[in-house]
Design a protein around this nucleic acid. Sequence first.
DNA 1: GTCTATATCGCGATAGAC
DNA 2: GTCTATCGCGATATAGAC
Lengths: 219, 219
Amino acid sequence: MSTVRKRDAAATREKILDAAEALFAERGYHGVSIREIVALAGVDLALVHYYFGPKDALFREVIERRAGEHVADHLAALETLRAESDGPPGVAELIRAFCVPMFEKMGRGPRWRNYMHLLAHRALARQSEVFLAPYEKTFEPMTRQFIAAFREALPGVDENALFHAVYFMHGAIVYALAETGAIERLSDGRMDSSDFGTLLDRFVPFFAAGFLELAQPSR
Amino acid sequence: MSTVRKRDAAATREKILDAAEALFAERGYHGVSIREIVALAGVDLALVHYYFGPKDALFREVIERRAGEHVADHLAALETLRAESDGPPGVAELIRAFCVPMFEKMGRGPRWRNYMHLLAHRALARQSEVFLAPYEKTFEPMTRQFIAAFREALPGVDENALFHAVYFMHGAIVYALAETGAIERLSDGRMDSSDFGTLLDRFVPFFAAGFLELAQPSR
DNA sequence: GTCTATATCGCGATAGAC
DNA sequence: GTCTATCGCGATATAGAC
């Protein structure tokens, strides 16, 4: 009996988190009410407060549910790359290791895709939003490790220029992950924002050329 | 007398639009109430409906107030470039003409800066948001003109690859315009997201290298 | 753990005096 | 053109029955 109760409890929690994830990804924190979340989840209104407390705590939990695995995937990709390389990994490999863990999750199914949409949307939110801080603590240390690896790959390059290059790359990734439909509209439907395989094949050489330009200006 | 009335009316309208612009840029459409807007503007609650009607119409008006001038600046930059060049403009010049009209506005004062923050935030919003359509009609034709110019500058390059390149560049611009504080945090305060002069000097060669890679793959 | 019922508040919108 | 007053609704949150 208590086992059944426990399993139901876990299932209820997940149903709420899944619904919240989908709706927050679609319309942002303020654009979604708890009532809409429970309607989509098929659970009672009061259960949200029972499991998660106030709305902002629910929002944080939606991100934190997947953030650990997400960041671990990035760090594992960097580790693998270092283990396989003689000497410091090259720029193209680092770019690939930085974006594959994100692009790959877009194909894992609707839940991970909603999570990535949510992260992309959140990446453009301004600092003042209360619920941003915990996220930054998880993701920024990972980004710093990649920046350190880029520094090794491009010795002698101005440090601030390198920060800017990573900044440019991160912006492009975030925009692609958001899947706003911009590329479908601009290409009159001939391209597909969810084709992250083709996107990756173009992304890596494009940004590698930019990073290499830092080390060897063409004029 | 009626002149005074008219001038006051226009001033009231502007006060509401300025306050709405600042708050929508900070927290998005759903994160701001009309009551907060009138509090910041120092005008009466009922005047918002008198001048603009419902909340979503006010939001559209905030964007449309500046969108015309903004888009015209882009097109003028492209025209100037074409007039000054023998033959089709080069890739670096096109990149500069595409991003200068945006970066430049960040230094024009807080109102234009708020408008750009709002556009950046909005660029990541998902299609379903009702109030996106009019904006797309204004900006997409301009973007198409730049894409056509890039196509002339890089004859023979795969068209979809070119779309992706513009997509990457646009993502990086949007992220920079949002000024989320990410670069300050990652650089431990040594860099400044509002220094668009330095950013531009790095942006142009970085992305020019990426575009040129499309035409001359390094391997 | 779940659901009913409700407290309390702030929202967008508007009617009508001035 | 501006302001007072208020309507009706839906929001978050919670107390308490089951």
